[in-house]
Computed example of a mutant assay.
Amino acid sequence: MFGLRLALGRRDGCRAVARAVSVAVLGFGLTLAAPAAMAQDVLVLAAASTKNAVEKLASQFKAKTGMSVTSSFAASSALAKQIENGAPADIFISADLDWMDYLQQRNLIKADSRVNLLGNELVVVAPKGSPIKPDLSKGGTLAAQLGDGRLATGDPSNVPVGKYAKAALEKLGQWTAVEPKLARADSVRAALVLVSRGEVPLGIVYRTDAAIDPGVEVAAVFPPDSYPAIVYPAALTAISKSSHAAAFLDYIKSPDGMAVWKEFGFVPAPKAP
């Protein structure tokens, strides 16, 4: 499965590889019928970029309370659609406000439980040891630096990291030149794998993703004013059945929980303007 090679000359090939990698990295989404044994588990659907932190939080929560947490990770867009289609989730953690808003507008979350939990930063990553120093100046030459290679990030049409990336590149006047060279991945972690394995020379991910993969390094950091503030909201779903879900949501936003988020590079959510 991991012997895939990106067909650099064709956008469709890039998309196919990105989808295949996404399945390999994140291919354990919840089915619509949860086993009876999971009835009292807290079922969390969380943005792919939160995977390592959520798994540690779940382990600590079980050690403290004896309550189990089952998690599934993918792009926020995919998870929101799963919830809309009846996936038995108790908690949703999104990598942007839009997909939480999408569910709230459809009365699929408990609005009074919603909280802006985390913030993050947008970076360009390259394979470890790469000599490329991406030009993120206004009207810069990022597209030319890619040569015949591709730039991996989430699909800007729906994946939050891709939406942030598009906004940043538009602000820098580089989107028109870079857009034809995109490898559109199904999640930020799928984009990260493409860079880590050398399938593409550069990728746009969150700083927290760059920190967990020893195969990549941060090659450049986007100016913070070039993209909308990155906000991760969390909320209980409207169909939550677990009596422990509210306790887990409280835990992940508690001082102990925030210490874990900080360990993995997340920061508190930026304050609303």
Rank of each mutant, 00 (worst) to 15 (best):
G154F: 02
P156M: 12
N158V: 07
N158A: 13
V159M: 09
V159A: 03
P160I: 03
P160S: 14
P160Q: 07
V161L: 13
V161S: 13
G162F: 00
K163D: 00
Y164G: 00
A165Q: 03
A165I: 06
A165P: 00
K166S: 12
A167N: 06
A167G: 04
A167R: 01
A168V: 13
L169E: 05
L172W: 01
L172C: 07
Q174R: 06
T176I: 11
T176R: 14
V178A: 13
E179W: 02
P180H: 13
K181A: 13
K181Q: 15
K181Y: 09
L182A: 11
L182I: 12
L182R: 02
A183W: 01
R184I: 04
A185V: 04
A185I: 02
A185C: 15
D186V: 03
D186I: 00
S187H: 08
S187A: 15
R189H: 00
R189W: 00
A191K: 03
A191I: 05
L192G: 02
V193C: 01
V193L: 11
L194P: 03
L194Q: 15
S196N: 10
R197I: 01
E199D: 15
V200S: 08
P201N: 08
P201M: 04
L202C: 09
L202N: 05
L202F: 07
G203E: 08
G203C: 12
G203P: 11
Y206E: 15
Y206S: 09
Y206Q: 14
T208D: 09
T208C: 10
D209G: 06
I212Y: 10
D213F: 03
D213W: 02
P214K: 14
V216Q: 11
V216D: 12
V216Y: 11
V216A: 09
V216I: 11
V218P: 04
V218I: 15
V218Y: 08
V218R: 09
V218N: 08
A219M: 07
A220C: 13
V221K: 12
F222T: 02
P223D: 13
P224N: 10
D225Y: 09
D225A: 15
S226T: 15
Y227L: 04
P228W: 08
P228A: 10
P228D: 12
A229F: 02
A229K: 15
I230S: 06
I230W: 05
I230V: 15
V231C: 05
Y232K: 02
Y232F: 15
P233I: 08
A234R: 02
A234Q: 02
A235F: 03
A235P: 04
T237G: 05
T237H: 04
A238E: 14
I239N: 11
I239Y: 00
I239D: 12
I239G: 05
I239R: 10
S240E: 05
S240A: 14
S240R: 05
K241Q: 15
K241D: 10
S242Y: 01
S242M: 08
S243H: 03
H244D: 13
H244R: 06
H244I: 00
A245K: 02
A245S: 10
A247G: 08
A247L: 07
F248M: 09
L249T: 11
L249A: 11
D250Y: 05
